[in-house]
């Protein structure tokens, strides 16, 4: 089975969305911050089992300080969401719950991965303490700079989407 799935990567500006995608697709990283505007789309195919692959069509959305203002059209036909925040900047994760609620209304039932990026900038105990204190749950803590947990994140989402596709296929048969 070879399927294509649209993944939207979003979050506040400067959290490292483009860097995460670049690390995953090109295995490279740049320290320079270049603002992404609009949407940039790339594709990478992931082998999820011996016979199955998932082509992830990654939509790297322009960062915003208000997720509710993300253009509706960018979310059309989305199969998965990666919500990225920066563990070193509390302003990027202070509204996670509200943002996820807004997204769930716009694209209901879409699998979402919450990712704290830039863990190379903060001591791990400090990250744990801050996130626990603020009651923030996440799926992955990553570093686009070092590559930590980046492939795991995308591959995990690819597997979730492959399983969903299997389930739907099973139901249809």
């Amino acid at each position: 089975m070879n399927i294509s799935k649209k993944i939207v990567v979003l979050g506040y500006f400067g959290v490292g969305k483009t860097s995460l995608i670049r690390r995953f697709v090109e295995n490279s990283f740049s320290n320079d911050y270049k603002v992404s505007i609009g949407v940039h789309i790339v594709k990478k195919t992931v082998q999820v089992s011996t016979d199955d692959t998932v082509s992830l069509i990654l939509w790297d959305l322009e960062g915003t300080d208000d997720i509710a203002s993300v253009r509706e059209s960018y979310l059309l036909g989305t199969h998965g969401i990666i919500y990225v925040f920066d563990v070193s900047r509390p302003s990027t994760f202070q509204s996670i719950e509200k943002d996820l609620e807004a997204l769930a209304k716009k694209v209901p039932g879409v699998p979402t991965q919450v990712v704290g990026n830039k863990i190379d900038l903060v001591a791990s105990e400090e990250v744990d303490a801050t996130l626990t204190e603020k009651g923030i749950s996440f799926d992955y803590l990553t570093s686009a700079k070092t590559g930590e947990k980046v492939n795991e994140l995308f591959e995990h989402l690819a597997k979730i989407l492959a399983l969903d596709a299997e389930r739907i296929k099973g139901k249809l048969q």
């Binding site: 505007i37 609009g38 949407v39 789309i41 790339v42 059209s73 960018y74 036909g77």
Partner: peptide, 25 residues
């Protein structure tokens, strides 16, 4: 031509007549 167009079937799913995308790289 470009991965943007790979999602057209899903975007235009459910009988959508038009869709506009601004600022696509």
């Amino acid at each position: 031509a470009h991965p943007f167009f790979l999602s057209i079937p899903e975007i235009m799913d459910a009988g959508r007549e038009t869709a506009t995308f601004h600022c696509v790289q």
